[in-house]
Design a binder for these strands. Structure first.
Length: 562
RNA sequence: GCGCCUGUAGCUCAGGGGAUAGAGCAACGGACUUCUAAUCCGUGGGCCGCAGGUUCGAUUCCUGCCAGGCGCGCCA
């Protein structure tokens, strides 16, 4: 499809240059050539490709849009269209619509089938290394619903980027060195004492979840003897480390069940041990990026676009999270990543200014770090929001969700909305095994493809009979619409990657499945017409490939029967 | 008070300067002797939150306002 687009673009550009050479258009339009847009129209009646360029050139050329359009089309006709273009028409206020000959259809089906699992991939990113950091939940409790959304969005984004020729990696930053870990240790210690029947006060800001008791119980079962032989400081430390490992393992398992695997779990503690944080704070001081006030070390982040300055080292000598986090982002860049994407929850949006300021101070160009803020998720049951209150212990974790809803449905539902929009997650719909459930609907389209091949096999039709089929006999509108949609897949993948918008690919998958179902109803695949049967089997094979590939990008399985 | 996000069909949401603003659900009416009816086809339904501005053209960009969500720590 790219080569078709390219040939039309060149032909358009050539026509415009000729018009300028012969003074039929003024030279100023040449400055606007780079912004030529060749889009795939929403409405099939507007052809396979269309450009609004005559409209956008109207101002510069000081001519009516339709007049410019007809000049361009005449010129293109003189030169002869590329082999794919059958005709070009001027429509509406001045759009130029290109209708392609059946050669593109034949080529598209062939391309899909020859590229197979690679269909949809491009080398656009030229191997640029991008690090996508997401979830990065504190290791003090179970993963929540927003973490689950982040996991689905982040993982899909990494897949989209890799499919678009980038070299993208995923990373989970483990905050295993901060104050929260010691609070966790204190909380577990208090529960442990409770189990031993000792009257011990529960920390004011401790974690009150039931799981803390579970951790204490588990520690007692496995290491009770050792712990009772320790003094209280050692026991506290032991329990802290035990809890940390327990919870990290738990988080890892939750994500594993969700089929989200990180390329790396990056430990804050290990980063600190390398001295990277000290080095950075010292360098910042030497460069004059910091000052001391009230016994603390402040970063002049407001000089670099943040709303106010931030404390790096507290008056008690400990770092705030800002220092190690900045050192972490520096480390990512030092490892050779040239673009960083952080996916954060809505409660962390203020964080962006500090990180951007830090990277700017270190001299990294604007745009090195992109922050994607996910909005909240509301779980809906029986049309009502599910109330969640941490205090009342009514809290639905990611594990709870996955126990109730299949992984495929959860992943799809979490990416189907814009990241910037609040997400209503309909639990009943996600569980439903009906046509209303978009995941089911898409998977069913794939299963239907497979079912057709099972039928063909049962009727003794050998793959060799249709693999080289002549598909130029496919002319039914449902067939053409399906091919059009398949043809745009690589474009859709790239756009979704560049816009950091997994929801686009979710929408594409739904539309593709819809077109397949319409085709299935309108066009009987296996019939007495042998040539048509072969051609349609080839088409179904292509559809099967695209459906499987798009499901794969979303991390959703492609069942062969349902 | 300040910052971020949102406001489009009864509901959930697409679209983000350009063609008649779309989809799914819900409502209503149709389609199976057939490769899975777990599907398909059709009908109705809209001051694109409000008011200005930029533009040949604004639902889209800008400003203000209104409404909702979330933040605003020497917590992460």
């Amino acid at each position: 499809m790219e080569h078709i687009r390219g040939s039309i673009m060149r032909s358009l550009e050539g026509a415009i240059r000729k018009l300028v050479d012969s003074n039929r258009l003024c030279a100023d339009v040449l400055d606007h050539l780079s912004s030529i847009a060749l889009e795939v129209p929403k409405d099939a009646r507007h052809g396979e490709f269309a450009t609004p360029m005559a409209l956008s050139l109207a101002g510069v050329a000081r001519k009516a849009p339709r007049e410019i359009a007809s000049l361009i089309v005449e010129e293109m006709e003189q030169e002869g269209f590329s082999s794919y273009v059958e005709r070009a028409e001027i429509a509406g206020p001045g759009f130029i619509n290109f209708h392609l000959s059946s050669k593109w259809l034949v080529d598209t089906i062939g391309l899909v089938r020859s590229r197979d699992e690679k269909y949809g991939c491009s080398d656009y990113g030229r191997g640029e290394r991008i690090l996508v950091e997401f979830v990065s939940a504190n290791p003090v409790g179970p993963l929540n619903i927003v973490n689950a959304r982040a996991a689905a969005v982040g993982d899909t984004l990494v897949r989209l980027l890799n499919a678009s020729g980038y070299s993208a990696a995923s990373e989970f930053y483990v905050n295993d060195a901060g104050r929260q870990v010691s609070v966790l240790g204190e909380s577990v210690y208090a529960r442990y004492m409770e189990l031993e029947g000792v009257d011990y006060p529960f920390p004011e800001d401790g974690y009150r979840g039931e799981y803390v008791k579970d951790v204490a119980r588990k520690a007692m079962e496995e290491h009770g003897d050792r712990i009772s032989a320790m003094d209280s400081d050692d026991a506290r430390h032991f329990l802290q480390e035990f809890a940390l490992n327990y919870i990290l393992d738990w988080q890892r398992r939750s994500l594993e069940a969700y089929e989200v695997r990180f390329d790396r779990w990056f430990s804050e503690r290990k980063l600190r041990q390398t001295g990277a944080v000290e080095d950075m704070v010292r360098e910042m001081a030497e460069a004059g990026y910091t000052y001391e006030k009230d016994g603390a070390v402040w970063f002049r982040s407001s000089d670099y676009g943040d709303d106010k300055d931030r404390v790096l080292v507290k008056s008690d000598g400990l770092y705030t999270y800002v220092a190690p986090d900045l050192a972490y982002h520096r480390d990512k860049l030092a490892r050779g990543f040239t673009k960083l994407i952080d996916i954060l929850g809505p409660d962390h949006h203020g964080y962006e200014g500090r990180m951007q300021a830090g990277l700017k101070a270190f001299g990294h160009p604007d745009g090195t770090l992109e922050v994607l803020i996910l909005q909240l998720v509301t779980l809906m049951r029986d049309g009502q929001p599910v109330k969640m209150s941490k205090r009342a212990g009514e809290f639905i974790t990611m594990d709870d969700l996955l126990e109730e809803v299949p992984k495929d449905a959860a992943r799809y539902f979490f990416i189907m909305r814009n990241t910037s929009s609040h997400l209503d997650f309909d639990l009943d719909l996600a569980k439903a095994q009906t046509t209303d459930n978009p995941v089911w609907y898409i998977q069913y389209a794939h299963a239907r493809c497979c079912s057709i091949f099972r039928q063909a096999e049962a009727e003794g039709i050998q793959p060799t009979e249709w693999e080289q089929a002549d598909v130029s006999c496919l002319v039914h509108p449902s067939e053409i619409d399906l091919v059009r949609k398949m043809a745009s897949f690589p474009d859709e993948v790239l756009t979704a990657a560049l816009e950091r918008a997994p929801s686009r690919i979710a929408k594409y998958a739904l539309e593709l499945a819809g077109l397949f179902h319409s085709f299935y109803t309108d066009c009987r695949v296996i019939s007495d017409d042998e040539a048509q049967t072969r051609a349609r089997l080839a088409l179904v094979d292509a559809a099967r490939i695209v459906l499987r590939n798009v499901l794969g990008i979303m991390g959703v399985s492609a069942p062969e029967r349902m």
